[in-house]
Measured scan of single mutants.
Amino acid sequence: KKKIKIYIENENGEKKTIEIEVEGDIDEIAKELAKKYNVKIVKIEP
């Protein structure tokens, strides 16, 4: 498992940072999160 930080922006332009532990393809997981929460991924840090 890797701990990563995902910087997101919602439709109101509010920026947030999510810190999660992931296993597998980080890009795939980030895309799923973006779709699920309707946010834009700004940056992903390993």
Rank of each mutant, 00 (worst) to 15 (best):
E14M: 11
N38T: 03
A30W: 08
E45M: 09
A30S: 05
K5T: 12
K43S: 09
I41R: 00
V39H: 05
K31Q: 10
N12C: 14
I44A: 02
I41T: 02
E19A: 05
K40D: 05
N12G: 07
K15V: 15
E21K: 03
I4M: 10
V39N: 04
V22K: 02
K2T: 13
E32F: 06
N12T: 09
T17N: 03
G13Q: 05
E45N: 02
Y37Q: 14
K1A: 10
I20A: 05
K3F: 12
G24M: 03
K36T: 04
I29F: 15
K31F: 05
K31V: 08
E23W: 14
N38G: 14
E19M: 08
I26Y: 08
V39I: 10
K16N: 12
E21G: 04
Y37E: 15
E21H: 08
I41E: 02
N12I: 12
K5V: 13
K16V: 08
I41G: 01
E21Y: 14
D27P: 04
K31S: 13
E28W: 07
I29L: 11
I8R: 00
E9T: 04
E9D: 02
L33C: 10
E23A: 08
E21R: 06
V39K: 02
K15F: 14
D25W: 04
K36H: 08
K36S: 04
T17H: 08
K2C: 11
I20S: 01
V42M: 03
K35Q: 08
E32D: 08
N10V: 07
K3T: 12
A30F: 09
K16H: 14
K43Y: 11
D27E: 11
K15A: 13
K40V: 14
K3A: 09
K40Q: 11
L33K: 00
E28P: 03
I29K: 04
E32H: 09
I44L: 04
I18L: 13
I18F: 13
K3W: 15
A30N: 01
L33W: 10
A30I: 15
I44G: 02
K40A: 08
I26N: 02
E19H: 09
N10P: 01
V39R: 00
P46G: 09
A30K: 04
Y37D: 14
I29T: 03
K36L: 09
Y7I: 09
K43A: 11
I8Y: 15
K16L: 15
P46Q: 14
K36Y: 10
E9M: 08
K15E: 12
N10Q: 12
G24N: 03
A30P: 00
G24R: 03
T17S: 07
G24W: 03
K40Y: 04
Y37R: 07
T17P: 02
K16M: 15
I8D: 00
I8N: 00
K36V: 03
I18V: 06
V39L: 05
I8C: 13
K3P: 05
L33Q: 00
D27H: 11
I18N: 00
K36M: 09
K31Y: 07
G13S: 03
E19W: 07
E11S: 12
K5P: 00
P46T: 14
I44W: 12
I29D: 01
I6Y: 03
N10T: 15
Y7W: 13
E14Q: 10
V42A: 03
K40C: 14
I26S: 03
L33R: 00
K43F: 11
D25F: 04
E32S: 10
T17Q: 05
E28Y: 07
L33E: 00
D27Q: 07
E32G: 06
D27T: 09
V22P: 03
K2H: 13
E14K: 08
K16T: 12
K16Y: 15
E11A: 13
Y7H: 11
Y37A: 15
E32R: 13
I20C: 12
I41V: 06
E45P: 02
E19C: 12
K3Q: 08
N38Y: 06
E28R: 10
I18H: 02
E32K: 09
A34D: 03
G13R: 03
K2Q: 14
I8W: 14
K40S: 10
K15W: 08
E45L: 08
Y7K: 03
P46S: 13
K2W: 14
I8P: 00
E9C: 05
E23P: 02
A34S: 10
Y7D: 04
I18Y: 14
K2V: 15
K36A: 04
D25C: 07
K31E: 08
K3S: 08
E19Y: 11
K5E: 02
D27K: 05
N38I: 02
E11W: 14
I4Q: 01
E11V: 12
N12F: 13
I8E: 00
E14H: 10
P46W: 15
K1C: 11
N38E: 05
L33A: 01
I4D: 00
I44N: 01
K1F: 08
Y37C: 15
G24H: 04
I44D: 01
E28V: 09
N38C: 13
I18W: 15
K16Q: 12
P46M: 15
L33N: 00
I26T: 04
D27N: 11
K1M: 12
I44R: 01
E14C: 13
V42I: 15
E45Q: 06
L33Y: 14
N38H: 12
E21V: 07
I26R: 02
D27M: 13
I29E: 03
T17L: 06
Y7A: 02
E45A: 05
K15Y: 12
I6K: 00
P46K: 08
T17D: 03
K1H: 10
A30M: 15
E11C: 12
E23Y: 13
K15G: 10
A34N: 05
E14W: 12
E21N: 06
N10L: 15
L33S: 00
A30Y: 06
A30L: 15
V22Q: 05
K43H: 11
E21T: 07
K3Y: 12
K40I: 15
K5C: 08
K31A: 11
G13T: 01
K1E: 03
G13K: 04
P46N: 10
E28A: 11
K16I: 11
E32Q: 10
E11I: 09
K16A: 14
N38L: 05
I29M: 07
N12D: 11
E28D: 09
K15M: 15
K5A: 05
E28T: 11
K40P: 04
I18C: 11
K36E: 08
I44C: 06
E32V: 07
K5N: 05
K31L: 12
K3M: 12
E32W: 11
K3L: 11
E45C: 13
N38K: 10
I4L: 10
